[in-house]
């Protein structure tokens, strides 16, 4: 049975470890989302506006990464890269794997958003004498980003969940910390449930923040 008093005691004992794990989860997810989004924007732009060689290379990259389970990407970053002489810490390897995973999602999302804009938008911009960079900056990008926002928020929540996979290579994030705590006190049900609650709260916060921004930038109709 659940023994809440004991759970509270054990949680108090492990409070710093939990806080550290939570901090690591938030840190590595945030970094992966930020770096992955920056890289993803570049990928999306190449996929839409790049020459055929650049497009072909980036398309291969995207399809390869998206066709590989994140779990395999994490393991490969940690074990394979060291095999070819690139020594990464668990943190670096994990961040690398999550970043490239994130970049392909953001890139595809942005590509879809840009391609969904009516051709007339580009033409109307050109017709008043705007150059292509101006058309992109003032007309296409603001509309594409609005469209991409819901899927981007979804990607961000996926990244938090995917960060649990880094426990396998020894990144001391929330799930790994939770398992260590459980190995000491055997309160597996309580602590897994607690970790699950924390993950839910992080993703719920991202979801709410996303909805807030969506409402703020929504166009009046």
């Amino acid at each position: 049975m659940l023994d809440l008093a004991r759970f509270a005691t054990e949680l108090w004992i492990a409070r710093w470890a939990v806080a550290q794990g939570l901090g690591m989860t938030i840190l590595i997810s945030t970094l992966a989302i930020v770096l992955g989004s920056l890289l993803g924007i570049g990928i999306g732009l190449v996929l839409v506006y790049g020459g055929w060689i650049a497009r072909f290379i980036v398309r291969l990259y995207v399809d390869f990464v998206r066709g590989t389970p994140v779990f395999v990407l994490v393991l490969a970053s940690f074990y394979l890269l060291s095999g070819i002489g690139i020594q990464l810490t668990a943190f670096q390897a994990g961040l690398f794997a999550l970043t490239i995973f994130c970049s392909t999602h953001v890139g595809e999302n942005l590509r879809g958003s840009l391609l969904s804009l009516p051709r007339g938008q580009m033409e109307a911009g050109k017709a008043i004498g705007l150059t292509f960079p101006q058309v992109f900056a003032y007309i296409l990008a603001p509309q594409a980003l609005r469209q991409a926002l819901p899927a981007w928020v979804n990607t961000a929540t996926e990244m938090v969940k995917a960060s649990t996979l880094l426990s396998i290579i020894g990144v001391v994030e929330l799930l790994l910390v939770t398992r260590e705590i459980i190995s000491r006190n055997f309160l597996s049900l309580e602590f897994y449930f607690f970790a699950g609650l924390l993950y839910f709260l992080i993703d719920y916060a991202i979801e709410r923040a996303g909805k807030f921004v969506e409402r703020r930038v929504a166009l009046p109709t």
Partner: peptide, 17 residues
């Protein structure tokens, strides 16, 4: 040169944002 001609389109093509 495009700025020297004013174009009005069938589908309006206003910037919705």
């Amino acid at each position: 040169q495009r700025a020297m001609t004013g174009m009005v389109f069938q589908q309006f093509n206003l910037f919705p944002h």
